[in-house]
Design a protein around this nucleic acid. Structure first.
Lengths: 337, 337
DNA sequence: TTGAAAGCGCTAACAT
DNA sequence: ATGTTAGCGCTTTCAA
């Protein structure tokens, strides 16, 4: 039960494999193969259910029609949604996605790039982490299309899709101040990436613009490696020790979820007296009583931009054409609830 | 800047490509290649950073070390979590995952199998839908490893990992009855698959065992194709028209989430007087006030079983050995909150 | 103990 | 307008 090959089709149609190959690749016209021959061969292909071996094709042509997707954790709703949209759009252009989660582990991330490279993926979509600069630069040096999103690596010239992180936290902080809040806490994660720093910057700038001095005491840094329970415990400790806090801005949605667990356990009422805003939206926030406001990242736009950038780079035929890197910054918006 | 090939290594080491190949594949010992040669070649490989071209290797050996994962929607938290765990475990065994979402579209699903086939994936992990029976049977006929999970197709002999759906809804319904509920509604989706039917069966059986006659009037079928808003609207209508309902069992977690939105909008207090249980857990249920009980599906167990089944089938060397299909049914448990 | 060479299935330059 | 054939990078049989 060996699968059919192009040879079998050629034999069945009494033509050479070249003819079959041309027809398969839509080059029949250009090669002026007769219409009746085309029809005949196509009929046989359909009847026998022949599908060309993509691996052989890849070896020959050098492209695999595969895009490698590297994110921190594919089960994170933000990445899962993006993955879904990217998959969908890539699929329509004949590309498949191979994904992998870095677990925020640099060694694993770099290993993934090498592994994808040995599998000859045509392009990379990466939510990068600090330390991957050199690896990405190597890819670019080989003229491999790379699009980076969600995070930005300073000094790395590559096509990038980001949301304006500082804008989001600026708006959120401003809104809290306008609600009369005086002691606005900022809960963030200890990952050293620009986006997280930017989120802090937006918070800080909004405070300063209103003449408030940022108070590091009510700025809480949560280790990325924490388990959910550890985070909840740390937050309980933090809010217990700082009862003057009258509003919180969480730098990520999963931290905000932990925060809500924490307030629940503390019997701390969220509401007008104690406002909470999360960065990145989540169904939970809409359902929570009272509603939790959130900074919304335009997921569909992000996916759209990412995929159209990568497809554009993938379609560049002229290898000598200088690729220009495109930076896309999307607005985040504050959803007041 | 052409990537290195095994030829370059052979040249650099002044040996034949055969020798390099044997060393690369750990067959050096068996071939009694001298230790110093091995060390020397390995050193060169490392120095030059050579990585064998996996595509060429695949063409030659016939296996791609790739597993195709087909689910309804990779962004659904249930599938996203499974995808993450499967990816992780597959990775440790040298396998990569290519995924695709069927969107519950039969044509797309069948197309995906064909596409994966042309990409020579070594095995398939599928959360199937009705109509795929023949395609899966074709794969099995070609002795391709397939593991099916989450859903079961009657009459299809294939390794399967399921949770005991009827057990979950039986336990949930029983618990509601024990809380004195008399009019227990069942909200489900109109997808014609065994698992969904089983969930209804568990509900029905629990009622009957307590001498209650199931009342179709308070059993609500929601179209799968509904948007979130449409579902919420239908639910509001349903609960408004049936005020006697004193408890609800939702057949899926996303329906339960819609239900919570609906109750919120209706200002209907969930609690002792109106109990809600969801099938499949979700962070939202833990955070909701009051807490929502849920039937928990052991995600990690599912992923474990799926991956160990597929790896076992993948490792079967003797093609003539009759494969035996293994059916794994995992218990679901009721988490009372 | 190592090397030469066939061949996996396909594409495309070249030949006819 | 269609056929012949080299070769993509690798594994593996067979020969030396």
């Amino acid at each position: 039960m060996k699968p059919l090959s192009i040879k079998d089709i050629a034999k069945a149609a009494n033509v050479s494999i070249t003819t079959v190959s041309f027809i398969l690749n839509g080059k029949a016209e250009k090669m002026r193969i007769s219409q009746e021959m085309i029809t005949k061969v196509e009929k046989i292909i359909k009847e026998l259910g022949f599908r060309p071996n993509q691996v052989a094709r890849s070896l020959r042509t050098g492209n695999t029609k595969t895009i490698g997707l590297i994110v921190e954790d594919i089960s994170n709703p933000f990445f899962a949604s993006i993955a879904r949209l990217i998959e969908d759009k890539a699929y329509r252009h004949g590309y498949k996605i191979i994904y992998s989660s870095t677990e925020n582990n640099l060694d694993k991330a770099r290993g993934l790039i090498r592994m994808f490279k040995s599998r000859q993926v045509d392009g990379y979509i990466i939510a990068p982490m600090t330390g991957m600069e050199e690896d990405i630069r190597d890819l670019l040096k080989d003229r491999t299309p790379v699009v980076v999103f969600d995070r930005h690596l300073p000094g790395l010239e590559v096509s990038t899709v980001l949301v304006d992180n500082s804008e989001g936290t600026y708006l959120a902080t401003q809104s809290l101040i306008e609600h009369g809040k005086k002691n606005i806490a900022f809960v963030t994660v200890d990952v050293e990436v620009e986006e997280i720093k930017d989120r802090y910057a937006g918070y800080e700038n909004a405070l300063k613009s209103k003449g408030i001095t940022p108070d590091t005491e009510i700025c809480k840094l949560i280790p990325f490696t924490n388990t959910a329970d550890e985070t909840t415990a740390e937050l309980i400790d933090f809010f217990t020790k700082n009862p003057r806090i009258d509003a919180v801005l969480f730098a990520t949605n999963y931290l905000a979820v932990r925060g809500l667990f924490c307030f629940k356990e503390m019997n701390k009422q969220v509401g007008e007296d104690f406002r909470v805003i999360a960065f990145d939206d989540h169904d939970i926030f809409k359902l929570h009583s009272p509603n939790i406001s959130a900074v919304y990242q335009p997921i569909e736009d992000i996916a759209d931009q990412v995929i159209s950038l990568i497809l554009k780079e993938l379609s560049v035929v002229d290898v000598f054409e200088e690729t220009e890197f495109k930076q896309v910054v999307l607005s985040s918006t504050l959803i007041e609830r």
